[in-house]
């Protein structure tokens, strides 16, 4: 089972790299959806101890939400706001990739200094989730369009979810569902916000939102 887990984790890092290096919004949304599906499969791959209904239900809920519902909401936000399909980065793609590699190295270094008092399923699950959190933060900061900031937020949350799976195997079901619900509302609200911003200002360039101050 560890082999499947490692493959999923490596695929998660690769999807981070693609997100950092790709310039089309539609592409980014698709990759983020794939990442959500892979994260949803994580609990099923870690279920060595026993495959329970709870784990399966959680996995399916995550896959459906992150893999299908969120991308649809984001795509609708783009379509209805009829905004540009490009990412418009503050930081160039090659530099972003470099930052992603740095974040990865930093999280592996950090993981070497942390010592968890519990048995982990895989040797790389903690550093991978840390690097996903860093990448998510970087995407939020370094991209101009609001949709991409939502994607960065999703990547960040994926990292937190993977870390929580690695460390606390037994998160109460209701807590997990609550987090998912929160995210759903967040993405929904952000989708509407993007639409509204666009109605008012003809763009969704968060950089220019500074002008809102009177």
């Amino acid at each position: 089972m560890t082999a499947y887990l490692d493959i999923i984790l490596v695929a998660l890092i690769l999807s981070d790299f693609i997100l950092l290096g790709s310039g089309r919004l539609g592409n980014c949304i698709r990759i983020a959806a794939w990442q959500g599906i892979m994260v949803g499969l994580l609990p099923i791959a870690t279920a060595d101890a026993g495959f329970s209904f709870r784990i399966a239900a959680l996995g399916i809920a995550v896959v459906v939400l992150k893999g299908f519902v969120f991308p649809r909401l984001l795509n609708r936000a783009i379509r209805e706001s009829a905004s540009s399909r490009e990412v418009k980065p503050f930081v160039g793609y090659t530099t972003s990739l470099l930052a992603g590699v740095l974040a990865l190295s930093a999280s592996f270094w950090l993981d070497g200094r942390l010592s968890f008092p519990l048995h982990l399923e895989s040797a790389i699950v903690v550093p991978v989730s840390l690097s996903m959190m860093f990448t998510g933060l970087f995407l939020v900061v370094a991209r101009r369009t609001a949709v991409n900031q939502v994607i960065g937020y999703l990547v960040l949350e994926n990292g937190i979810y993977a870390l929580s799976l690695a460390i606390v195997r037994d998160v109460p079901f209701l807590v997990e569902l609550g987090v998912l619900m929160d995210m759903f509302v967040a993405v929904f609200v952000m989708g509407i916000a993007i639409y509204r911003i666009n109605m008012e200002f003809d763009h969704m360039d968060s950089n220019r939102l500074a002008k809102l101050r009177g």
């Binding site: 690769l14 470099l98 590699v101 990865l104």
Partner: peptide, 10 residues
């Protein structure tokens, strides 16, 4: 190509 480098580092 930078992606290839990143994959190698990974």
């Amino acid at each position: 190509l930078a992606g290839a480098g990143a994959i190698s580092v990974l």
